[in-house]
């Protein structure tokens, strides 16, 4: 048995045919080729698979593709404005908020949810806000700094530097 699923991903409408057991993360990675969303566990705990579903962060390994039929999804590939970077992406780069980069897309997507509801979080709020995301490389310190920095950039409404220049 298969099902037709319509999804808007990063602003682009797609229609895919999936088995009901297909997880959203696999639909994104395998059917749509959006491999920026990662899988780091099998118990819904690492958050590497975090995407935004209708504006809220969710673990795409714990959502069936069929469940989100008609939904709108943003993945890490859809974060950056044309030719630039999202404030979070830029801040992760500036603050060395990543090492191997495997947790990074999920971290950024979870952080976006946090900043949307709490534009000026304390360090403590940031640390709790990313408790659904594991990072084994950074000890989290620079991730916290990056999210703090992105918050202040977004609050200031300052344009985010385009491209990859220092």
């Amino acid at each position: 048995m298969t099902e037709q699923v319509r999804l808007t991903v990063n602003g682009v409408a797609h229609e895919i045919t999936v088995e009901p057991r297909q997880l959203l993360v696999h639909a994104l990675r395998e059917d749509l080729g959006l491999t920026g969303t990662h899988v780091g566990c099998d118990t819904s705990q690492c958050g590497a698979c975090t995407v935004q579903l209708n504006g809220a962060a969710v673990k795409s390994c714990t959502v069936l593709a069929v469940q989100v039929d008609g939904g709108s999804i943003t993945t890490i590939e859809g974060m950056a404005p044309e030719g630039g970077l999202h404030a979070l992406q830029n801040a992760f780069w500036e603050k060395h908020g990543l090492q191997c980069g495997f947790c990074t897309p999920g971290m950024i997507m979870a952080a976006a949810d946090l900043l949307a509801g709490n534009p000026d979080p304390t360090d403590d709020e940031i640390r709790h806000g990313i408790e659904g995301n594991l990072c084994r490389c950074t000890g989290y310190q620079n991730i916290v700094a990056a999210i703090r920095e992105a918050g202040s950039t977004l609050r200031a409404g300052a344009p985010v530097p385009a491209g990859a220049q220092d």
């Binding site: 809220a56 673990k59 949810d113 709790h128 408790e131």
Partner: peptide, 12 residues
């Protein structure tokens, strides 16, 4: 409720 799970889990 903020003590339950994490943001992603609470969203779903």
């Amino acid at each position: 409720i903020p003590m339950i799970g994490d943001v992603q889990v609470r969203n779903r």
